[in-house]
Amino acid sequence: MTNNLTALEDWTAPILNKLAPAERRNKLRQIGQQIRKQQQSRISNQQNPDGTPFAPRKGRIKRKMFTKLKQAKWMKVQAKDDIVTIGYTGRTAKIARVHQYGLTDKPSPKSRSIRYRKREVLGVNKKNAVQQTMLQHINLSE
């Protein structure tokens, strides 16, 4: 995934450098919001970035996972002069990180530690989706 993001950065940098700083921030924020919508849709469908389904829960719990994590209230988009970030903060970030990497955590202070299965809450599998989003926003501004 790092190679895809590096290639994407190399592809987008010259385009974004042609824009004024305020316009660049605005475009980056719009692109971040579009990517967030794609992530929210993928989480709603209970899929990892590569299209495989999330690892099932243990036990008899049938409701969907991450129903609150996909909300814009928790999944924040921040745009600065030359970078856009999409992610979580605080306790929400801890929950997302545990599932993202398949770490060990305690569901409550008095319970025993549990090893969670890896479920990629955030991630981009194809740079084409981001490129198309970027092209769409650039074409709208011309």
Rank of each mutant, 00 (worst) to 15 (best):
M1G: 15
T2D: 09
N4L: 02
T6M: 00
E9Y: 05
W11E: 13
T12M: 13
T12D: 04
T12F: 12
A13N: 10
P14W: 11
K18P: 04
A20F: 09
P21I: 12
P21W: 14
A22P: 09
E23D: 15
R24P: 11
R24H: 10
R24A: 06
N26Q: 12
K27D: 03
L28S: 09
L28Q: 12
R29S: 08
Q30W: 01
Q30Y: 02
I31Q: 05
G32P: 03
Q33S: 13
Q34A: 15
Q34D: 14
R36H: 05
Q39G: 02
S41W: 00
R42V: 03
G51V: 01
P53Q: 09
F54L: 03
F54P: 02
F54D: 06
A55Y: 03
A55H: 09
A55D: 03
P56C: 01
R57M: 01
K58V: 06
G59Q: 07
R60L: 00
R60S: 15
I61F: 07
R63G: 10
K64F: 08
M65R: 06
F66V: 01
T67L: 02
T67G: 08
K68D: 14
L69D: 06
L69A: 12
L69F: 02
K70D: 05
K70V: 08
K73Q: 11
M75N: 03
V77P: 08
V77W: 03
Q78L: 05
Q78F: 00
D81G: 11
D81F: 01
D82A: 08
V84K: 10
T85S: 11
T85H: 03
G87M: 02
T89A: 08
G90W: 10
A93L: 11
A93C: 10
K94T: 15
I95H: 05
I95V: 15
R97V: 03
R97Q: 11
R97C: 02
Q100W: 09
Y101Q: 12
Y101W: 14
G102E: 06
G102M: 06
L103W: 14
L103G: 04
D105R: 15
P107M: 06
P107D: 09
P107N: 06
S108G: 13
S108F: 06
K110A: 11
R112P: 04
I114W: 01
R119E: 04
E120T: 08
V121N: 02
L122E: 05
N125F: 08
N125T: 13
K126R: 14
K127A: 11
A129D: 15
T133C: 09
M134A: 10
N139W: 03
L140H: 15
E142A: 04
